[in-house]
Computed example of a mutant assay.
Amino acid sequence: MIRIPAGTFTMGSDKFYPEEAPAHRVSVDGFWIDETPVTNRQFAAFVEATGHTTVAEIAPDPKDYPDLLPGMDRAGSLVFHKSPVPVDTSNPANWWRFDFGADWRHPLGPDSDIDSLDLWDHPVVQVAYADAQAYAGWAGKALPTEAEFEFAARGGLEDTDYAWGDELAPDGAMMANYWQGLFPFANQMLDGWERTSPVRTYPANGYGLFDMIGNTWEWTSDWWSDRRGGDVKSGGKAGAKSSCCTIRNPRGARLRDSFDPAHPGVKIGRKVLKGGSHLCAANYCQRYRPAARHPEMIDSSTSHIGFRCVTRDI
């Protein structure tokens, strides 16, 4: 783990997506954070020691999901499938598919496995929030807050778009694992990786942390709130004014405020994901930035979400 000293920084952004606004001053106490995302090797040790069964390995109970379609009451998880042609990027169903038998051991579906794909040193994926929380408890750690993650991801830089500066690929260098090309059908793989990459593949940030940006989204402990500060129609640019006061150690929204208003009948909380993933592209989801954030239902697991842990100064 790497120790992150206490500090104050500008959290959020007024330049990109509305939910990142307004940019505001936040202070966090000192804490320790994992140098890399939790890997398959580390997660396997946890499962061997505890016998933990992940959410993706348990068939959903129709009583908990009254709208469950016939035949969907089987264990599985969401897997990304590259489209063969350009598709409507407003509909994630064009590239996400619920694959029966997909789980952390079989991240791309039942016919894949982390051993044959040599993924032991890649970030573990197909883990729901409860799985990440269980690992953290076993390790004597916790999941980071959104503020802690963003502060650590910035690596000591202030007012820069990316964790390494204001240029996405300085002098053509790939600084993180993100999608190069047109999502979701044409990945140029300039960095050599179409999906996840081994941890420590890309340069560490200013704090010595790897993969805080790209590779996989990462769970945080904060319930989601939609901090909309601008007109969504104005190219996604936010326009809210910054907060006048510094907030210390923010802890996110309340559970009831994290529900998805688009689905009022579904009362499953959403947590904040940070860091972006290998599926973020210039033409879709430019969230390979410290300020970027995304909501995810806590019972969801996918092929592009992982996590890392923290411990806090006493």
Rank of each mutant, 00 (worst) to 15 (best):
P184F: 00
R74K: 15
A253K: 07
P107I: 07
A152K: 00
G208L: 01
E19L: 06
V232N: 12
L157K: 13
V232C: 03
W179D: 08
W120P: 01
G12S: 03
G137L: 10
A147E: 11
S225T: 00
R227V: 00
M175R: 11
N40P: 12
Y162F: 15
H263K: 14
Y17W: 09
R228Y: 09
I213A: 15
G109P: 00
I4H: 06
Q286G: 12
W224R: 03
D118T: 10
I58T: 15
F43L: 14
I33E: 10
F183T: 02
S258F: 02
A130C: 07
M175H: 04
R154M: 14
G239V: 03
G214A: 09
M174I: 12
A163G: 12
K271M: 13
P62H: 10
Q133V: 02
D159H: 10
S83I: 02
H278Y: 15
T10P: 01
D226V: 03
E19I: 08
S243D: 08
R227P: 00
I58A: 12
D103V: 02
I114A: 04
L78C: 12
F98T: 09
M1L: 11
P84G: 11
R41H: 08
S27A: 14
D260Q: 07
A75T: 13
G229H: 11
M72Q: 15
P60Y: 10
W217D: 09
F259P: 02
D103T: 06
D118Q: 15
T246R: 06
A136R: 04
T302Q: 12
N187T: 00
I247A: 00
Q133H: 08
K267S: 13
A153K: 04
M72R: 15
H106D: 11
D231P: 06
P92C: 02
D211T: 00
N205E: 06
R25S: 15
C244V: 14
G236R: 00
A281C: 08
P22V: 05
L209I: 08
K233A: 15
G172M: 09
G230H: 05
R154Q: 13
M297T: 15
H294R: 10
A23L: 08
E296P: 01
D64W: 02
P184K: 01
M212T: 15
G109I: 01
K271R: 15
F151N: 01
P60I: 09
M189G: 01
S303W: 14
A186N: 14
L273F: 14
G208M: 10
K267L: 15
T10R: 14
I268W: 03
K15C: 01
D121T: 08
W224N: 01
G269P: 05
P60Q: 13
Y207R: 05
L255W: 09
K63Q: 14
P170W: 07
S301R: 13
A262F: 10
P22T: 02
S13L: 01
D103Q: 03
D226Q: 05
L143T: 02
S90G: 08
G235T: 04
P18L: 08
T54E: 04
P198E: 03
G235L: 01
E48Y: 00
